[in-house]
Lab assay of single mutants.
Amino acid sequence: TQTTHELTIPNNLIGCIIGRQGANINEIRQMSGAQIKIANPVEGSSGRQVTITGSAASISLAQYLINARLSSE
């Protein structure tokens, strides 16, 4: 079954999640098997909405990979 998880990434950290020309986010997508959508910046908001869709296992793996990127910054 597909589930969806949403999280907010601070604007100053979204770059390390996306990577150069989307390299990091594509790697996270491939490794986790989850669909990951990053919302466009919202004016006045300090973060970007990230939506992860997939199986429970792929979502938790995607979250783990995202958190690993954030903590390495």
Rank of each mutant, 00 (worst) to 15 (best):
A57L: 05
L70R: 03
P10E: 06
I28P: 00
A34R: 02
G19I: 03
T3A: 13
E73G: 11
A34V: 01
L13G: 03
P41W: 09
H5W: 14
E27Q: 13
G22Q: 06
L13N: 06
A68V: 07
G15R: 08
N24I: 10
L70T: 05
T53H: 03
Q35M: 09
Q21D: 08
A23R: 14
I9Q: 01
R69Q: 11
Q30M: 08
T1V: 13
I52V: 06
T51G: 03
P10N: 00
A39N: 14
S60Q: 13
L13P: 00
I28R: 01
A68G: 08
L65P: 01
S58M: 05
Q63N: 12
A62W: 00
I17Q: 01
N24Y: 12
T53Q: 10
K37H: 06
M31V: 08
V42S: 11
A34E: 00
N40Y: 07
I28G: 01
N11V: 05
Q21M: 05
E6W: 09
A39Y: 10
A56V: 10
V42Y: 08
R69F: 15
A56P: 13
H5S: 14
Q49K: 10
I28F: 02
N24D: 12
G47E: 14
Q49N: 10
I28S: 00
I25A: 03
E43G: 08
R20N: 15
A34W: 01
N26F: 05
V50G: 01
T4Y: 12
A62T: 01
N12W: 05
N12Q: 12
R48W: 07
G33Y: 00
S72Q: 04
I52E: 02
I17P: 00
L65V: 01
E27D: 09
I17C: 00
H5F: 05
E43L: 11
G33H: 02
G22M: 07
L7K: 03
K37F: 04
G44F: 07
G33K: 05
N26L: 05
I18H: 01
N40Q: 14
N26W: 05
T4C: 09
N24T: 12
N11S: 09
G15L: 04
G15T: 11
I36Y: 01
Q21L: 04
A68N: 15
G54C: 01
S60R: 12
S71N: 11
